[in-house]
Simulated scan of single mutants.
Amino acid sequence: MRIELTGVSVEVAGRRLVHDVTLRAGSGRMVGVVGPNGSGKSTLLRCVYRALRPATGTVRLDGADLHAMDAREGARLLAALPQEAGTEFDFTVAEVVAMGRLPHQRGAGRASAEDTARCARALARVGAGHLAGRGFLGLSGGEKQRVLIARALAQDPRVLVLDEPTNHLDIAQQLEVLALVRAGDTAPDAADGDGRAGERGDRLTVLTALHDLNLAARYCDELYVLAHGRIAAAGPPHDVLTPELLAEVFGVRAHRVRHPETGAVQLLFDRLAAPAADS
């Protein structure tokens, strides 16, 4: 399922934070939004997962206006992991992940055996199956993040929107989570134990904001660089992450190298030299 933003501007408290953004993530693609702090990444994604409504422009899933959809219909298609995601009540991990199944249940119906199985598989996919009986509030930051990603996967979406999904994760977990969503399909049971195919085998479309440019370069098919709420550059990571752009947008001097195994562009950073003082 493709997601398209056309001419999207976002205002918060009367201030325009995102200006006329046009962005496209093709079906099964992983697209990253990068930029310095305050560039509008989270604001833009909040508009995509309907926490904010655009002041102008549209957000469409396969051509259908997302903001015109019924909330339940939209939640069946798109799941999100916001930066501030969490819960103030001490639900068990299993209960938190089960919340991802609510859009698929009618009324206040109980979780079915299928729902329970999907939740268990989602936890297993993020390496958190052993946490199912634990209280969510007692988990470490990294454990909480993995559980929330499992909740999003259990929702069985076609599009996944992630705002800084590697927060609180150690290096190994960062690589595991991004590899999971990069390669993931939209059906948690696409490879059931009996070998049968799942309901859908098409890959997730992923839109994610990332701070780490090396992770973005390694896992994303395309990048959109935001600066002051506007698109400064867009395209494949190798074309976008140039020393000139990184100096202009991030204020750093970058040295590009190739990852020895994947061939992806990787970056080494130095501070930009301070301008010489006038004599």
Score class of each variant (00 low, 15 high):
Val93Glu: 03
Asp212Met: 08
Ala197Lys: 08
Phe269Lys: 03
Gly38Phe: 11
His130Gln: 14
Ile3Glu: 01
Leu81Asn: 10
Asp20Ala: 10
Gly251Arg: 06
Val177Phe: 10
Arg203Val: 12
Glu244Ala: 15
Ala108Leu: 15
Gly127Asp: 03
Ala247Trp: 05
Val59Tyr: 06
Asp62Gly: 10
Thr92Asn: 01
Asp70Met: 03
Ser27Ala: 15
Val97Met: 08
Ala71Met: 04
Arg271Pro: 00
Asn214Ser: 12
Asp163His: 09
Gln266Ile: 05
Ala247Phe: 06
Ala152Asp: 06
Arg121Gly: 01
Ala51Leu: 14
Asp194His: 12
Thr58Ile: 03
Ala232Cys: 11
Arg258Thr: 15
His211Leu: 08
Tyr224Lys: 07
Ala274Asn: 01
Cys220Val: 11
Arg125Tyr: 02
Gly251Asn: 08
Glu244Ile: 00
Leu139Ser: 06
Arg271Val: 12
Leu213Arg: 13
Arg182Asp: 09
Asp156Thr: 14
Pro103Thr: 01
His67Arg: 05
Pro275Asn: 10
Glu244Gly: 10
Arg196Gln: 13
Gly74Thr: 05
Leu272Met: 13
Thr56Pro: 00
Phe269His: 04
Gly107Leu: 05
Ala124Leu: 10
Pro188Lys: 11
Ala152Glu: 07
Phe269Val: 14
Asp202Phe: 08
Leu272Trp: 06
Asp239Cys: 01
Asp170Leu: 09
Gly127Tyr: 09
Ala85Ile: 07
Gln145Val: 13
Leu272Ala: 05
Leu162Tyr: 10
Arg15Met: 09
Leu178Gln: 12
Ser39Asn: 03
His259Ser: 08
Ser112Ile: 03
Ala232Val: 03
Ala108Tyr: 04
Leu61Asn: 02
Ala197Pro: 12
Ala111Thr: 00
Leu245Met: 10
Arg125Val: 08
Leu175Ala: 14
Gly251Ser: 05
Leu66His: 01
Glu4Tyr: 00
Ala113Val: 08
Ala254Thr: 13
Ala71Val: 13
Leu78Ala: 02
Arg271Glu: 14
Gly201Ser: 14
Ala13Glu: 15
Gly74Met: 11
Thr6Ala: 14
Val225Leu: 06
Ser42Thr: 15
